[in-house]
Amino acid sequence: MLEIKSVRSEIFGPLNLHLEAGQCAAILGKSGSGKSLFLRAIADLDPNEGQVWLNGIERSAMPAFEWRRKLVLVPAESGWWADTVGEHLARTDETDQLLADLDFPSEVLNWQVSRLSTGERQRLAIIRALALKPIALMLDEPTAALDPEATARVEKLIEQQMGLGVCVILITHDAEQAARLAGVTYLLADGKLTQTSLETAR
């Protein structure tokens, strides 16, 4: 269960959000409305105020790095620091399974990061995050650079995670995707979060 209370920064808020285990909330909104900043604030990656509880534990009760392993954010632009994929992703049975789920051959770990396409990076960043086995997952436009088939695979993976009880917050510009995945959809505008019906979002 994820409970977000009065999270605010200079740009948005205070914002509240409540998610039961296995639930997905989609956040729509114009570029620049602060969607990504909201997720960064929840992950405590930018200075912000407010409380966030995950399964009843408030984030200030633990060091930030521990918090970010439980509640993992996958930003729209993934970051890489070493030459090969394998240096960013340890080989385990879980990662092997995740790689197969997203249609990567197992030798992907030897691939050069510099030669990956944007879509490949995006999918590998999701795998890298899921390898932490998070309690909650925040995805910032996870399928923005993907073709329909790859998008379907990622959506299936997200649903699988929800089935395991993972809370998901999804930023998307695709109202159809929000409809497919999310039980509840919000619109972020003027620093405020309002629940919206998908009809309006479309």
Binding site: A43, L45, P63, A64, F65, E66, R68, R69, V72, L73, V74, P75, E77, S78, G79, W80, W81, A125, R128, A129, L132
Partner: peptide, 16 residues
């Protein structure tokens, strides 16, 4: 220059 890389490392649960 490497801000996305540093933040990716932080988001994967590394200490500063």
């Amino acid at each position: 220059r490497e801000r996305p890389a540093v933040e990716a490392r932080l988001l994967l649960g590394m200490t500063r």
